[in-house]
């Protein structure tokens, strides 16, 4: 009779969480080098029109097919993803900086500062994000920076709330009392003891915001209010391909859509894993 060997469960069976995290890492490992390296290294013109090869389905020559003027969709998608990721990253960063500053000030100072700041946050969040975003881009000429501004202005609110709540809970700790007793000013307490305590949460909020910001950018571009139409962005690609979808050509909308969904899920999945490490008790909730 064979001797039974005890094995820790992790050896034989990986948890679904590990598999999910690895899938997210794999997606990002393909996408990030692609958007960073392909545009500068490949000497290909994403705007190259080839009317003889218009609306070709996916093939070896054009893996994602071609659009209605014969431009290679794989190349267009990589360029579009580059813009979307850039907007997502920068907007999430700006929104996090604004949100952390406002939230930390409101939480640390309390009183009237807190009341005024939080009512402002409530008022802004009562306006639909997309409407406010459209208002912001409408003020400027179409381009990348107005889109970044529009996304940042509408997305710092949740970070401000998270940071404020966290700072308020830290403010009551005895080590803040000890710091005040040791002569620390309000500014010193905030910078030395409160903000470092909320940075992990703020960082997590920033990463979770990248997918939001990418979708927001795509929505604006899809509505024709984001990037100028000639510039490839995932929203623009879907928007210009709408007509061919009715004609039965699925690839011009499918691949930009896929490239919007995959990275956002991957980023959200990685952020979820990070959140689980920060706070293992709240494992089950959906991350998006």
């Amino acid at each position: 009779m064979a001797e039974q060997v005890w094995r820790p469960q992790g050896r034989t069976r990986r948890s679904t969480r590990t598999v999910r995290v690895r899938a997210c890492v794999a997606v990002m490992a393909v996408i990030v080098p692609a958007v960073l390296l392909v545009p500068p290294l490949a000497q290909l013109d994403q705007q190259a029109v080839d009317l003889a090869a218009k609306l070709q389905p996916p093939s070896w020559e054009h893996p994602f097919g071609t659009d209605d003027v014969g431009r290679d969709l794989l190349l267009r998608c990589v360029y579009g993803l580059r813009v979307s990721l850039f907007v997502g990253l920068v907007a999430a960063l700006v929104a996090t900086v604004i949100g952390t500053a406002v939230g930390a000030a409101a939480g640390a100072l309390g009183g009237w500062t807190d009341r005024v700041a939080m009512r402002a946050v409530d008022t802004l969040s009562s306006v639909p994000h997309l409407l406010l975003g459209i208002f912001v881009v409408a003020v400027f000429r179409p381009g990348v920076w107005p889109v970044v501004a529009s996304v940042a202005v509408t997305h710092w609110l949740s970070t401000a709330r998270i940071v404020r709540a966290e700072v308020m809970s830290l403010r009551g700790r005895a080590y803040v009392d000890a710091a005040v007793s040791g002569g620390a000013s309000r500014w010193r307490v905030a910078v030395r003891h409160l903000v470092p305590g909320v940075l992990p949460q703020a960082g997590l909020a920033a990463v979770l915001m990248i997918p939001h910001a990418m979708w927001h950018e795509s929505a604006l571009s899809f509505l024709g209010l984001g990037l100028p139409a000639h510039q490839a962005s995932l929203g623009n690609l879907v928007q210009t391909a709408r007509g061919s979808l009715l004609a039965g050509d699925w690839w011009p909308t499918f691949f930009p859509g896929l490239l919007l969904i995959l990275p956002t899920l991957a980023i959200a999945g990685l952020a979820g894993a990070w959140r689980d490490r920060l706070n293992p008790r709240r494992r089950s909730e959906l991350t998006l």
Binding site: R173, A174, Y175, A179, V180, S181, G182, G183, S185, R192
Partner: peptide, 26 residues
């Protein structure tokens, strides 16, 4: 608290009951 002049605040040293809570973990 913060509204006390610094010279008065620092004239009193405090030791709290629970060192874990009274020390910034970072």
């Amino acid at each position: 608290f913060h509204r006390a002049p610094r010279s008065l605040r620092t004239a009193v040293g405090v030791v709290f009951q629970q060192p874990r809570l009274a020390a910034d973990p970072r």
